[in-house]
Design a protein around this nucleic acid. Structure first.
Length: 105
DNA sequence: AGATTGACTGCAT
DNA sequence: CATGCAGCCAATC
């Protein structure tokens, strides 16, 4: 099996996402800042390629404004919000998450 | 090999 | 508060 001897930055990003505790959220930028050589855009790309039913808590990643970045018209948006609320994450009236209360670190 | 795009971000207008 | 633009890196065409 010709696998690489060390995790790709793609996999490292997913590993970081796995460390976000339930009930908390981190921004794309915050996740990418933990893996040198990566950017917020890569985080979104990595999560978008995630297989259904993966163990990665992709829903705990939101944009820097504390808002869900998935297209509001798609099913992913509603699903992410549902999962977060199930973990106790509260949304403001405007649909913005209170990062002061739920922000990671 | 060059252009385009994406679940971003920060600063300027 | 809404828009625009540059910077960023990998995947795709």
């Amino acid at each position: 099996m010709g696998q690489r001897a060390h995790p790709t930055s793609f996999e490292r990003l997913l590993a970081v996402v796995r460390t976000i505790p339930p009930g908390q959220v981190a921004s794309y930028g915050q996740v990418s800042a933990r893996v040198l050589g990566t950017t917020p855009r890569m985080v979104g790309f990595a999560l978008a390629a995630l297989p259904t039913g993966s163990d990665v808590p992709w829903h705990r990643v939101v944009n820097a404004a504390g808002r869900i970045s998935l297209p509001a018209e798609g099913p992913g948006h509603a699903e992410q919000r549902r999962r977060l609320e199930a973990e106790g994450v509260s949304f403001r009236k405007s649909g913005v998450i209170d990062l002061e209360a739920h922000g990671w670190l």
